[in-house]
Design a protein around this nucleic acid. Structure first.
Length: 153
DNA sequence: GCCAACGTTGGC
DNA sequence: GCCAACGTTGGC
């Protein structure tokens, strides 16, 4: 099992959207960055994923979700009505991937970005680096445990 | 293959 | 809404 972190604007799809229907998988689609896509492709069923809320009032890690379906071609890339439509992609040669996730846990309090930045144990996490725009990133086991230990503290 | 221009991300 | 940082595009 591996650990990851994904960013999302909670207005679009946040931890509450997962919590609302805990057994209902939600497709994590619309990723249009190659580095992020490559990480998506590495995800396996059962992997745990921190859910990070960006561009909102309470910026930080809001909970945990879990991968229930490994990477498959992102359907939105073929949908002309979708904002994620990509004319250069085709079903024969799909360019973008999606995974399905389900709710696992919502933290009582969001762990603020500011606090994450204070932790030297997390210095290598791409999230806290200046100008980091990567929306899907790996988290090491020790980083994972460290962040979990910050919950409720 | 370089690099300027452009669009997007995302904290503040 | 500002703007720095970054990825992508496209002309050459």
């Amino acid at each position: 099992m591996a650990y990851w972190l994904v960013k999302s604007e909670p207005d679009e799809c946040g931890i509450d959207d997962f919590a609302r229907a805990p057994d209902e998988p939600i497709a994590w689609d619309g990723v249009r960055n190659y580095q992020a896509r490559n990480f998506l492709a590495e995800m396996d069923e059962g992997d745990r994923v921190f859910m990070y809320h960006s561009s909102c009032k309470l910026i930080g890690i809001a909970g945990v979700i879990r991968v229930v379906r490994a990477a498959y071609p992102d359907p939105t890339q073929f949908d002309e009505q979708s904002p994620y439509f990509d004319a250069k992609s085709s079903p024969e040669k799909p360019r973008w991937k999606a995974v399905d996730m389900v709710f696992e846990r919502k933290f009582d309090d969001v762990i603020p970005l500011q606090r994450l930045k204070e932790e030297s144990a997390l210095a290598d996490l791409p999230l806290v680096k200046k100008g980091a725009r990567l929306s899907v990133m790996p988290v090491t086991e020790s980083q994972w445990n460290h962040i979990l230990s910050m919950v409720g503290s």
